[in-house]
Design a binder for these strands. Structure first.
Length: 291
DNA sequence: AGTTAAACCTGGTTGC
DNA sequence: TGCAACCAGGTTTAAC
């Protein structure tokens, strides 16, 4: 489900609640994509820092609580001198996070609860492609291994049109798949890759290395514009995406091509077409995206 | 080395 | 109504 806008919308909806919250307990449901990587009880007593995002991952730093006392006995003092770490979370295809002041009983698709002194962060993920992984730091394993292949952030000023074009030049496969791979830029999943290609008027089947410099510049602008617009309207809610307080996204209503097979293109009225590329549906307008 | 299929899961929708 | 087939926001791993 969640592409970068949905993950960022989620981050913004949980960060103020999590910052400074002290972990009381952790509840695990069915196995997710990867094991947590630590005994759940060892997280007790740590305070959550400022929630960050990298690509479609969320990073919840766990630090030593600065206000000492008040809590009975932080059992965090693990053997020796653990200096904290954090939780790297991914929402996979069907995951979402919810914040509950008073959590109800866990449902069959609730596979991770981070219970804190301020409330509970709950991961609901029917397909269980998501993950929660403990890591001693973003730069250490296993976080490092998961993040290392990510390309630049879309709104990183260091990602210039020239650099983006150079990345596209390294691949001969269709541009749609290259966007999805997230090596040239992270964040555009199936919805926003389709939408960005439409706005840039680029045929999704065009070989990546055949995208000219000006067209690469237009594509980068389209990726940025699409992701920014999606974030501003709360992301896309196709089936079940909600932010941590149950707010649905609105972007799907203004999609130009995604999910519109057979419907008239909003620009030229030509029927939107669906093809399969790299095992994923690609929606595009054969008239607006001729080449 | 680069590109593409298979795999991980569950559930909703469609069509016979 | 029942059931098979297909579809879905992602990413790693194995195989051409």
């Amino acid at each position: 489900m969640p592409e970068l806008p949905e993950v960022e919308v989620t981050r913004r909806s949980i960060a103020p609640y999590l910052a400074g919250a002290v972990v009381r307990s952790v509840r695990m449901g069915k196995p997710l994509r990867w094991p947590l990587g630590c005994a759940p009880d060892t997280l007790q007593g740590w305070a959550v820092g400022q929630t960050q995002r990298r690509g479609k991952y969320l990073w919840l730093p766990l630090e030593t609580p600065n206000s000492s006392g008040m809590l009975g006995s932080p059992t965090a003092a693990v053997e020796g001198d653990s200096a904290g770490g954090g939780l790297l979370m991914h929402l996979g295809m069907s995951g979402s996070l919810a914040w509950h002041a008073l959590p109800g009983p866990a449902g069959i698709h609730d596979h991770f609860d981070l219970v804190t002194d301020r409330g509970t962060l709950r991961l609901t993920d029917p397909r269980r492609f998501g993950a929660v992984v403990w890591s001693s730091a973003l730069t250490e394993q296993p976080a490092q291994k998961l993040l290392q292949r990510l390309g630049p952030e879309p709104f990183d000023a260091a990602l210039t049109p020239l650099a983006f074009h150079a990345s596209l030049q390294r691949h001969r496969s269709p541009i749609k798949g290259v966007l999805l791979a997230g090596e040239a830029v992270v964040g555009a999943g199936n919805i926003y890759a389709c939408e960005a290609l439409f706005h840039a008027k680029i045929n999704p089947r065009l070989a990546s290395d055949k995208v000219s410099r000006p067209r690469a510049q237009a594509l980068l602008a389209a990726v940025r514009g699409t992701l920014a617009r999606a974030m501003s309207v709360g992301g896309s809610t196709l089936r079940d995406f909600k932010d941590a307080h149950g707010m649905a996204g609105e972007f799907q209503a203004e999609a130009q091509v995604y999910g519109r097979e057979g419907l008239a293109c909003r620009v030229c009225a030509t029927p939107v077409r669906r093809i399969v590329q790299a095992q994923r549906s690609t929606f595009w307008c054969p008239q607006c995206q001729k080449r």
